[in-house]
Nucleic acid binder design. Structure first.
Lengths: 222, 222
DNA sequence: TGTACATCAGTGAACGCGCGTTCACTGATGTAC
DNA sequence: TGTACATCAGTGAACGCGCGTTCACTGATGTAC
């Protein structure tokens, strides 16, 4: 295989091997030794680059968020400007990612399996930023580079309660759909109905957000 | 410990030990041998009752669904009859379960880790039935013992498109919220805000469902 | 009521397995002078 | 341009570990007669 003693780009080769392995065998089959094997290197070599299994897995999860962010951006650019289209594009991209990288999707959200790395955190935040900006654009607010600013005290996310509500309702729905369908809970819905479901949900949720928006925001009169 | 050669109720003892172990150490620390140890029995004994690790894990997951069903029913009975209250009760109970039995919650939905057992399937279906009946009651339709009937061709769940839409929107939201918060993605929301979030979401989603209901059902005019 | 026997539940030693980690090493690379 | 040397990346053998599974076994239980 390799002609030189040094690999050249082992870190990337290990990440690629890990991606593949995770897809093929899931978390239970994910081992340092097998990643090293696939990268064509002795099983002690990865230590120099990732410290251990958790380090490698963390880096793979971070790449997962980066990929998800990329795909969300792509679909959002291609979609129409109205909230319904943007919402549909988001859920379609999110779900497609969960299907294609299902084990990645599962571990990406599991802090207990991963190291507490800055790369991971900022990759996850960037994904979340893309989601929040869908709502911000819709409300004519400026987009941001981060979902969360220090000055947004109390409420966590700036620009008031309604924005946060919309973001969370949207994200929860999209995530819940992706997760439940991924795990086979929607056995009664076939592939054709699936697209219609996503579209209808996008329509109804965007209606909800726009109606409440026009009516002045606060609907909570208790 | 035990004075007789036979345990007496080893199956249940193993399930209890497994529940505890799963909570303490998660899936990676879940082993047949440790379950046997905690049940005070040799490590080969569980074979007679569950066949192997997967069998035991499957039975534990089934009990998880049963527990979730019980808690949903309890909270729903205590709650008011309006959709907002019912919805809030559902999401509160669902989320509380996910927090308390987090590793159970994670594996319950993972068919790839579990055997294809009838007990598991019917326990999961019962949970789903409780969720669907929240919507059915609200629409003045009779409750059912199953979410899915054979005669509900095409659409999967009977009584038309709108019912299915409402069920899925509600379930996805609740599940997405529980899962994302469980995995620490809502770091910007503290415990106080959390209750308010759930309440607001319940209010807005029940509004959505009732408005669309009164307006005659179909809002999808494309 | 007693006896014989099949069945069932649990034992404990043994097996092979692949894992992560450690360690002394070696080949390649980069840099100071 | 050459040499010395530190640093870095990868090797391969060895270690201990706990796992799941298998197996011949034994003690308890239930049942037929």
């Amino acid at each position: 295989m390799r002609s030189t003693y040094h690999h050249g780009d082992l870190a990337v080769a290990l990440l690629d091997a890990g991606d593949e392995l995770l897809k093929e065998r899931g978390l239970p089959g994910f081992t340092l030794r097998e990643c090293a094997r696939r990268a064509g290197v002795s099983h002690a070599a990865p230590k120099h680059h990732f410290g251990g299994v958790r380090g490698l897995l963390t880096a793979i999860a971070a790449r997962g968020f980066e990929r998800l962010t990329r795909e969300l951006r792509l679909r959002l650019e291609q979609a129409g400007d109205d909230l319904h289209s943007q919402f549909l594009a988001t859920s379609t991209a999110y779900y497609a990612f969960a299907q294609r990288y299902s084990e990645h999707f599962r571990i990406m959200f599991r802090g207990d399996l991963l190291d507490d790395s800055d790369d991971l955190k900022s990759a996850a935040l960037e994904t979340f930023t893309v989601l929040t900006n869908v709502i911000r654009r819709q409300r004519g607010e400026p987009e941001r580079d981060a979902p969360y600013l220090d000055e947004d005290a109390g409420r966590g996310i700036g620009s008031g309660k309604q924005v946060l509500d919309d973001i969370l309702i949207g994200w929860c729905h999209i995530h819940g759909y992706a997760h439940l369908r991924l795990e086979g809970q929607f056995f009664m819905i076939n592939e054709n109905q699936h697209h219609e479901m996503l579209d209808t949900a996008a329509k109804r949720l965007s209606d909800l957000m726009q109606r409440d928006d026009e009516s002045g925001g606060e609907t909570d009169e208790r």
